[in-house]
């Protein structure tokens, strides 16, 4: 009784004026699809660089030890293929009982930008943009007013009436960038360092909007570095060459600092304006500075709780 097996009628075939219109529609649809395929052709050139393993790679924190090794091997091979350099990718882990903090003495910083340069080299930054995680501001004496600051000065330093304020990731204890990220591609490690999984980030740049310190950078295109300039000692979460289209940031050089070494920016500082160490160690230099100098943090009112302190000599 029910005509349950009846096929739905096909209006394109059955509706008047039928034949000709349907044929034209089919032609139009075919042409349309061909046009879309042509328009999107650049995508195929792009996907040549991608591979299934990378596409399916899990979040860093869900990778097993074996999977990690496979990923590192693949990344090393890719670096060899794309950049012609033999690199070694490591995976330094936070040291138990260590929380990093940084302090910067504004009285003796001379604005030489050696720290920014060291960061550029250490962290395999794109050579074209001269990128660095550190931006040094020439500030007007008499206040800490970035409105009067200038990060692109290009004259002999130090200038009278000025002081110099390098700004980099403040490794906030309450990081707005981590809260913002929709996919947990950036998180805070046990030693306080905020890291990015460059293979998980989708490049929405919400973290860059959320950061109050202009600490994050985006890879607007594929970084360019000559093979001979590549720093081969690379950390997966830190200075390995970043892919196009993802965020990156200062990691306090975790591939160095988690091995007990100083960050590159500190080593480059000629005046010793930079103090780094384990804030949980009561005998560390960083603790001495925090306890004995009148330190301050940038934008304290935002409640981000930076681990980066500034101070002046009395």
């Amino acid at each position: 009784m029910n005509n349950l097996n009846s096929m739905p009628e096909l209006p394109i075939l059955n509706d008047q004026p039928t034949g000709r219109r349907s044929f034209l529609k089919a032609c139009g649809a075919t042409l349309g699809l061909a046009a879309w395929a042509t328009a999107l052709r650049p995508l195929t050139e792009w996907t040549e660089d991608l591979n299934v393993d990378e596409f399916l790679q899990k979040h860093y924190r869900e990778l097993t030890a074996d999977q990690k090794q496979a990923v590192f091997k693949r990344l090393e091979a890719e670096t060899k293929e794309n950049y012609g350099a033999d690199v070694h990718i490591t995976d330094s882990q936070p040291i138990p009982g260590v929380q990093f903090a940084y302090a910067l003495n504004l009285s003796i910083c001379i604005g030489c930008r050696k720290c920014a340069e060291a960061c550029h080299i250490e962290n395999n930054h794109d050579r074209t943009t001269n990128n660095s995680y550190i931006r040094v501001f020439e500030m007007q004496m008499g206040g800490i007013d970035f409105e009067k600051g200038n990060a692109t000065y290009d004259h002999p330093v130090p200038q009278p009436g000025k002081f110099y304020m390098p700004v980099q990731c403040q490794q906030c204890e309450n990081p707005p960038c981590v809260t913002a990220c929709p996919i947990e591609a950036t998180w805070q490690e046990d030693d306080g360092i905020v890291v990015v999984d460059y293979n998980w980030c989708i490049g929405c740049r919400y973290c860059e909007a959320a950061c109050p310190y202009h600490a994050r950078r985006f890879n607007w295109e594929k970084p360019e570095i000559p093979a001979e300039e590549i720093n081969p000692q690379q950390g997966y979460l830190s200075n390995r060459i970043r892919p196009q289209g993802v965020m990156e940031k200062c990691t306090f050089c975790l591939h160095r600092t988690r091995e007990g070494r100083m960050p590159a920016c500190l080593e480059a500082c000629p005046t010793g304006a930079r103090v780094f160490g384990n804030v949980l160690d009561p005998d560390s230099e960083i603790r001495w500075v925090i306890e004995n100098k009148r330190t301050f943090v940038l934008k304290e009112e935002l409640g981000t709780k930076p681990r980066f302190y500034y101070f002046f000599d009395e």
């Binding site: 990220c181 998980w200 980030c201």
Partner: peptide, 19 residues
């Protein structure tokens, strides 16, 4: 606006990581 549209699946709850 995404730099890596190929990783769109990271946004899918359950498969990706949804913050």
């Amino acid at each position: 606006d995404l730099g890596r549209p190929d990783r769109f699946w990271h946004l899918i709850p359950g498969i990706g990581k949804f913050n």
